[in-house]
Amino acid sequence: MKRALVTAGASGIGFAMGEAFAQAGYEVWVTDVDDAALARCPDAWTARRVDSSDDGQMRALFDEISVAGGLDVVCANAGVAGPTAHVEDVAWDDWKTCVDVTLGGAFLCAKYAAPMMKAAGQGAIVLTSSTAGVFGYPNRAPYSAAKWGVIGLMKTLAMELGPFGIRANAICPGAVEGPRMEGVLEREAAAKGMTRDAVYEGYASGTSLRTFVTAEDIANMAVFLASNGAQRVSGQVISVDGHTENPDPKP
C-alpha cells in the first residue's frame, strides 16, 4: 500500500487531503499541532503531533516513517495566515512565525522526504502555495512572501530531484470556504473598514467563476498530482481558485 503524509492534516484542506488519499487507497499519515483536531482523525490514520517548523520534530517523524517502510507522497500543507496589516505595522515575530511554518515547514518536508524517495526511485512532493504566491497581495506581506518562496522551492525541487524520479508541484488555492478564510475575511474587513460580506463579495467577484473553492477541490488536485495520470507533470504551479483575476477586493 502506498503511503502519503499530509502536514497540518487534522483540519481544513489538510484533512480533506487525508480523506482523498485514503479513498484513493493510500495509508495516510497526518501531522498537526491541534491536539483536539488530531483526536478526531479517523482511527485508520497515523496522526502525530508535530510542529512543521521544528527541525528535530520533523526529523523524528521522518525517521518513524522510514522505519514503517518509506513514503510515496508528501503534501507540505502546513501554513500560517499571518497578520493582515500594513507592512510597517507587521511585527517581526509575526513575520518569522509565518515564514518559518509556511516556507520552513515545506523545506523540512522536502529535506527529509528526499532521501527515502531517492532510495525508492520515485515519489511526489505536493506543496500548498496560494494565489498570494502568484500575485502581490496588499496587507499580507509575510504570507505572500512565504507562499512565493514555496513556489521557488518547488521549482528547485523539481529540477534537483527529477533525475531520481521524484516530481514536485505546487497547488495555489484561492479563497477556500471554511473557518480559516472566515478569519481572514474578518481581519481584512477590519483593516479596510469594510463589512465581512463586502470583502467576501470582493473575493468572489475577483474570479471568473464568481465563487470560492472548497477544501475538497484542493484535495482532488493533490491526489491527481500524486497519481500515474500526472507522471509527466512536475515543476508546475497549478491554481485551484476559480481563476482569480483581482487579488485585492475593493469596497
Rank of each mutant, 00 (worst) to 15 (best):
L153C: 07
V99L: 13
T195D: 04
I166N: 03
A60P: 04
G152P: 05
D72F: 02
L209F: 14
L5F: 13
A191F: 03
T211I: 04
A106V: 06
N228D: 15
D197F: 12
A36P: 04
L209T: 14
V87M: 11
T211N: 04
R140I: 00
M17K: 00
Q231L: 02
Y112R: 03
V30L: 07
T195K: 11
V213S: 08
F135V: 12
A124W: 01
A110N: 05
V99G: 09
L61I: 08
A120E: 02
A219V: 08
V6I: 15
M181R: 13
F107C: 01
M1H: 09
T211G: 07
A85F: 03
D43Y: 00
K2S: 14
I13E: 02
E216V: 15
V33Q: 14
F62S: 07
S52K: 06
G183K: 15
A189T: 08
G242T: 05
G14F: 12
N220G: 13
K192T: 10
C98N: 13
L153M: 14
L38W: 05
D93N: 12
L103W: 08
P42S: 06
S66I: 02
V90D: 14
N77E: 09
L103I: 12
D217R: 07
G162D: 02
A76K: 00
S239K: 12
